[in-house]
């Protein structure tokens, strides 16, 4: 019986030594590393279309935001490519038009700020966030008035850039 126990204990010790050897070998291999430079970039989601009869606002999202440290991603209205006259956005139907007021807000609260008070910025994002860290919602409200029946449409262009926060 003692012989049997001795044999068993010997096997245990042998297995322990082999395991320690395998672990030690892995430690040596773990020093290998692979390097790769991640180019900074991002993807911004803007609304494809918006029906003001159903919803009076559009939300801006971003994904895969990877920027240099302290840089932020800004989304502004590109005034040069969007139908603006006297600080109002215009929906057109042939020669007829409806002026609209634009205000900037956030999905998180009811605050509405005239877009010119935010310097046309409608959303600000930071690395790793998909929700805007500031603003993120653009309210579009047709001005009151009597307008000819029909479908009025317009397009909004956005300007997207990264920059260091003030």
């Amino acid at each position: 019986m003692k012989k049997l126990l001795c044999t068993l204990l010997s096997i245990v010790v042998l297995v322990s030594c082999m395991t320690a050897h395998v672990l030690a070998a892995n430690e040596t291999e773990a020093s290998t590393s692979v390097q790769y430079t991640v180019e900074s970039g991002y993807t911004v989601s803007i609304p494809a279309t918006l029906s003001l009869n159903n919803t009076g606002y559009m939300d801006i999202y971003a994904s895969n935001v990877s920027l240099d440290q302290n840089k932020k991603l800004y989304v502004k209205i590109d005034k040069s490519k969007t139908s603006f006259t006297y600080d109002q956005f215009y929906l057109m139907n042939g020669s007829n038009y409806i002026p609209c007021d634009l205000k900037v807000g956030s999905p998180l609260n009811d605050e509405k700020i005239p877009y010119y008070d935010t310097d046309y910025v409608v959303a600000i994002f930071e690395t790793g966030y998909t929700e805007p860290t500031q603003y993120g919602r653009l309210y579009i409200t047709p001005s009151n008035g009597a307008y000819e029946a029909g479908t009025y449409s317009g397009t909004i262009y956005f300007e997207i850039y990264s920059g260091y926060s003030a």
Binding site: V34, E39, T43, S45, A48, Y61, N64, I160
Partner: peptide, 30 residues
């Protein structure tokens, strides 16, 4: 610095970016 595994994950996320319904995804570059 990232590992090879992470690199594969990044490549995947870049080429087939998720597009939210009703939106246009715009790829941006710094």
């Amino acid at each position: 610095e990232v590992s090879g595994d992470s690199l594969k994950a990044l490549e995947g996320s870049g080429s087939v970016a998720e597009v939210l319904p009703g939106t246009i995804s715009i790829p941006g570059y710094d």
